[in-house]
Computed example of a mutant assay.
Amino acid sequence: MTDNYTGNVKPGGPADVRTLGGLTITKVAVDEQMSNNAYLLRCCDTGDQVLVDAAAEPTTLLPLVGDAGLTAVVTTHQHWDHHRALADVVAATGAQVVAGEPDADAITEQTGVPVDRRVTDGDTVAVGSCELEVIRVTGHTPGSICLLYRDPDGPPHLFTGDSLFPGGVGNTFGDNDAFATLIDDVETKIFDALPDDTWFYPGHGDDSTLGAERPHLAEWRARGW
C-alpha cells in the first residue's frame, strides 16, 4: 500500500484514490447537505468494479465508473441518503443490486429498484478476483451491512456505512435497545474480530482505524450513543 491517500473528501471536490496490491479504492463525497461518501472499488487484475452506496449525484458517480461499467452496487443500509442515485446508476450500468436482507424491501420501496441479491453474515461480494466479506451489523437499521476486504499484502479494509464512525457508532435515534444491539455487534463482529491496523471507511466524513477507536469503546457504551 503505497499512496498519499487521506480519505478527506468534500462534496464538489476531487475524489481520493488508494491503490492496494489487488484493489483500487476511490472515495468521493456527494451532496452538500448530507456529505455522503461513495466508494468505487476496482479489481486490479480484471478491471471489474463495484460501487458501495450510490448515495447521490449520478453526474458525479458515473464519470468515475467510466467505460469499465459496474458488476454490482452495494447499498449499506436503507436510509434515503444512501441510495438516491441507485436508480440512475443501475439504469446506466445494468449492475446487480446488493443489500442486507432486512433492509432490501425498504430500499426497493424507496427507489423502485429491485434488490437482486440479499446478503447477510458470511456472504461474499466479488470484485473481480477480490472478495468482500459481508458483516451484518444491526442497530442503525435492521439490515445494515459492512464489507470487509482482507488485503493479502497489508491490513484489512472495512466499509462500515453508518454503523461505525470515528468517535462512535451510528445513530440509533434514542432507541436504547437498538443502541445495545449496535454496540454489541460492532464490538464482537468488528473490534473483537479484526486487528488495530484495520482501516475503516464510513458513510460520511473521514476514515479511521480500529486501533484509534478501540480505547473509546467503553466510553461509547457508557454514554449510550
Rank of each mutant, 00 (worst) to 15 (best):
L23W: 08
P63I: 03
V52Q: 02
P58M: 05
T24H: 06
Q33D: 15
L51V: 05
L41G: 12
V65L: 07
I25A: 01
D48K: 12
L51Y: 05
D53R: 04
P63D: 03
E32G: 07
T60Y: 04
A29Y: 01
C43M: 02
A55H: 02
G22T: 11
Y39R: 06
T59M: 01
N37P: 10
A29D: 00
M34G: 07
L51H: 02
T26Y: 08
V65P: 06
E57P: 02
T26V: 13
L61S: 07
T26W: 09
C44I: 07
P63Q: 06
E32K: 14
I25D: 04
A38T: 15
V52R: 00
Y39L: 09
L23I: 05
A54W: 03
T24K: 14
A55M: 00
V52F: 10
K27D: 13
T60L: 03
P63Y: 03
A56G: 00
D53E: 09
A54K: 05
D45C: 02
D48W: 05
G22M: 04
I25L: 15
Q49E: 06
K27E: 10
E57R: 14
L41R: 12
L51S: 05
C44N: 15
A56Y: 12
D31I: 02
V65Y: 08
E57M: 07
A54N: 10
T60P: 03
T24I: 08
L51A: 08
A29V: 01
A38V: 11
D53Y: 06
G22Y: 10
I25K: 09
V50E: 07
A54L: 04
D45P: 00
M34A: 15
Y39C: 10
V50M: 07
T60D: 06
T59V: 02
Q33Y: 12
I25C: 01
A54E: 10
K27M: 10
P58F: 05
P58R: 12
N37F: 10
L61F: 05
P63T: 04
G47N: 13
V52T: 05
L51M: 10
V30S: 03
D48F: 01
L41F: 12
T60H: 06
L23F: 09
Y39M: 08
T60A: 12
N37G: 05
S35K: 15
